[in-house]
Nucleic acid binder design. Structure first.
Length: 720
DNA sequence: AGCACGCCGACT
DNA sequence: GTCGGCGTGCTC
């Protein structure tokens, strides 16, 4: 039998009472609450603020952060400082309330933000007072708060979690410094290389005029996109508004920063990246928050930068996985910037060499317009692309030693006569599966059909899902018995190429040592995808894209899109075909992404992928979310959740165990535990309802502490 | 998460 | 009566 304590406390004064003093105390607080005017103007003897004496506070993180606002009394001496947006400390927790003697004080001090000041509280009970105003700096303005709320709702996460991503930690010393003077807006930019796009100058003009054009921009290959991005930001500044550019990594941010400096000089923009260190980052963030600087270029955390009067948000290369924040609730920069463009009435520019299905959907729904060059211009700017099958064995002994097909060998040799040659090799760890050497059929576990993996160097096989050892393997399709091992890494490829091309310098760029640029001289540059150095001058004379099968064989819905994105990224660094640039891709020419590369048609590829997704009911046409955790917890969660009409539950299925080598990602089970994952799918337009249902269920389960918590992920990245 | 409150059994 | 273990629910 449950106690009726809560109900009485809740304020039903009609209960007959036998609990003497206790009940009298409760009645008293209820009476006070029902007559707000009777609320004392003092708190434990201290005077309260005369105007708006109640602060609504968001508690930043508690043991269990409760995703709602809490009312606190504002003492008179904090009245002036406790303005909306400032950081405060409050006592929170049972024991805070005044007990009989009225002297008790308990609960820990927690950090929070004043969200608003109001005249009265709805709370039926005595309010505790704000303990402290940490700083009078209003760091959570109304626009940022609204954005964070929307992001929390979109991702079924808590506001506190989102604020942790959006508001940087405080440094008192930095706050004491003055921010620089706001410089006057620059003149409208000349179109520059934007005139290569028929709609380019018009897009800039619209931004300069103060309009809010939205575009999905397919960038021409070559190095001009960084300057074009900078020019778009200048257009927003020229309109008297602010600009925000988000790019995947610090290296890219530095390039765009340099272009902005070239156009604007110093002082009108800031670079915001993690590499700055917390203090410098806070200094720059404050300059933006105070309105002293109106343009920002940065990596994903900058997507929340509180730019005043936002006129343009732009995102470069939305297919790059680093645009997904790894911290809960894992918001994606593209989605956040879409929300910002809508909420803050800003122009939107999504640029890339490739196109994601999400970008294709923005175009298809008419939310954004395509911004691309004419076919003839594209063809002239892009290198010549040749394909070669994997089994095209080279006759030349040197080429065979380097595992290069004849066509690739010849392209490299020819390219080296004119400049540097890029060789793109997938990262070693990137290939998740072993496959039949003859027919490429992935090797699967005989028990659970999970992917087989090689353990260490000894060649023993085990299943990546159930961990069982596998005996001698033979291919169920073609009867082959040899497995294709993981891709040869960049280093060994470099060694082999060095032997094949004696006298040619070989440089490598990869995870550990990323080169920014290479000189315009003959050299072989071996790089993993994403780490390709920019070749100075005209660009690379040629590029070889090796081991295409490894990129395409990933068990991921996005494998084709991702392979194309990586190829385009490398090929865009190569000279145009009129300047003799050549790219050789080693992959089956019948495959859709390979054909899209040959035709340099990322928009067409994305449109077809989107159509496929629509037919299969996959995101982004439908909206999906995952629920991960111990099997009982997932089952209970699903039983309790009131999902929107027509929602489908797929699974749950066991989550593949986290591999010993790989770092644990959110959603992986802790070592030794078996977790399950269910996927939820709703029709287009029901995404918000799904997120709301998940959030409610999670909140109820956490509050009641029913069973173990589950992890929620809206837009799970690895379906397939 | 803490913490207080109420219930209920064990002991003075 | 009074003390304290334990279950439940609240935290402005």
């Amino acid at each position: 039998m449950s106690s009726d304590n809560g109900r009485r406390r809740g304020g039903d004064s009609g209960q007959s009472g036998e609990h003497g003093e206790q009940l009298a105390l409760i009645r008293e607080s209820v009476r006070k609450a029902k007559e707000p005017k009777a609320r004392p103007r003092t708190w434990r003897g201290a005077k309260l603020a005369g105007e708006l004496p109640v602060a609504r506070v968001l508690v930043d993180k508690g043991p269990v952060h409760l995703d709602r606002l809490w009312d606190y009394a504002v003492p008179a001496e904090l009245d002036a400082q406790a303005q909306p947006g400032v950081r405060v400390r409050v006592r929170f927790g049972a024991g805070t309330r005044q007990v009989r003697g009225g002297r008790r004080e308990g609960g820990g001090l927690l950090d929070g933000y004043v969200v608003e000041r109001v005249a009265e509280s709805q709370y039926q009970g005595p309010l505790a007072a704000l303990a402290q105003v940490v700083s009078p700096e209003p760091v959570l303005g109304p626009a940022l708060l609204r954005l964070c709320r929307a992001v929390a709702d979109r991702y079924a996460g808590s506001l506190a979690d989102v604020l942790q991503l959006a508001v940087p930690p405080r440094h008192a010393r930095i706050e004491a410094e003055p921010s620089p003077e706001l410089l006057p807006p620059p003149a409208a930019p000349a179109p520059g290389s934007w005139s290569r796009y028929p709609a380019g100058p018009a897009y800039l003009d619209a931004v300069v005029r103060g309009d809010t054009p939205r575009a999905v921009w397919t960038a021409l290959p070559g190095p001009h996109w960084a300057a074009e991005l900078a020019r778009a930001a200048v257009a927003a500044l020229a309109s008297g508004r602010g600009a925000l550019l988000v790019v995947p990594d610090g290296r890219t941010a530095a390039r765009v920063d340099a272009e902005l400096t070239a156009l604007l000089g110093a002082g009108r923009h800031v670079l915001l990246t993690a590499g700055l260190g917390p203090e410098e980052r806070y200094r720059r963030w404050l300059a933006v928050n105070r309105g002293a600087v109106r343009a920002v270029v940065g990596t994903r955390a900058a997507m929340f930068a509180p730019v005043r009067d936002l006129g343009l948000v732009a995102l470069w290369d939305d297919g790059d996985s680093s645009h997904s924040d790894p911290s809960a609730p894992q918001p994606h920069a593209r989605e956040v910037l879409e929300l910002r463009a809508a909420q803050e009435k800003a122009a939107f520019l999504l640029g890339a060499f490739g196109r994601t299905v999400e970008a294709a959907q923005l175009v298809e729904t008419g939310w954004a317009l395509p911004l691309a060059a004419d076919r003839a211009v594209v063809r002239a700017a892009a290198p010549r692309i040749r394909t070669v099958g994997e089994h095209d064995e080279a006759r030349d002994a040197a080429a065979r030693a380097a595992r290069l097909p004849t066509v690739a060998w010849e392209a490299a040799r020819e390219g080296l006569r004119h400049g540097p040659v890029l060789v793109q090799v997938p990262r070693r760890g990137y290939v998740p599966r072993l496959a039949c050497e003859r027919c490429r059929e992935p090797a699967r576990c005989a028990h659970c059909a999970g992917p087989l993996e090689a353990r260490g160097q000894d060649g023993g096989l085990h299943c990546g899902w159930c961990g069982r050892e596998s005996g001698p393997w033979h291919c169920p399709e073609c009867g082959g018995f040899r497995l294709r091992a993981q891709v040869v890494g960049a280093r060994r490829t470099a060694e082999e190429l060095g032997r094949a091309f004696p006298g040619v310098p070989v440089r490598t760029s990869g995870r550990d040592h990323v080169l920014d640029t290479v000189p315009d001289r003959p050299a072989l540059v071996v790089s993993t995808p994403g780490a390709e150095p920019v070749a100075e001058g005209l660009g690379y004379a040629a590029a070889l894209l090796l081991d295409g099968w490894a990129l395409l064989n990933r068990p991921d819905l996005r494998a084709g899109e991702e392979a194309l994105r990586r190829w385009l990224g490398a090929a865009a660094l190569v000279r145009g075909q009129e300047a003799g640039g050549t790219v050789v891709v080693v992959a089956d020419p019948a495959l859709r992404p390979v054909q899209a590369l040959v035709r340099w048609d990322p928009a067409g590829h994305a449109a077809r992928e989107l159509a496929d997704r629509a037919e299969l009911g996959f995101p982004p046409v439908s909206r999906m979310a995952s629920v991960t955790g111990p099997p009982e917890a997932v089952a209970e969660f699903l039983a309790m959740a009131e999902l929107p009409d027509g929602a489908e539950v797929l699974g749950p299925v066991p989550v593949p165990a986290a591999l010993p080598g790989r770092p644990r990602r959110p959603g992986d089970a802790p070592p030794g535990e078996r977790w399950e994952r269910a996927l939820l799918r709703v029709r287009p337009g029901q995404g918000a309802a799904l997120a709301a249902a998940l959030k409610t269920t999670q909140a109820v389960r956490l509050a009641r502490r029913e069973g173990e918590p589950v992890r929620l992920r809206v837009d799970p990245p690895d379906i397939g």
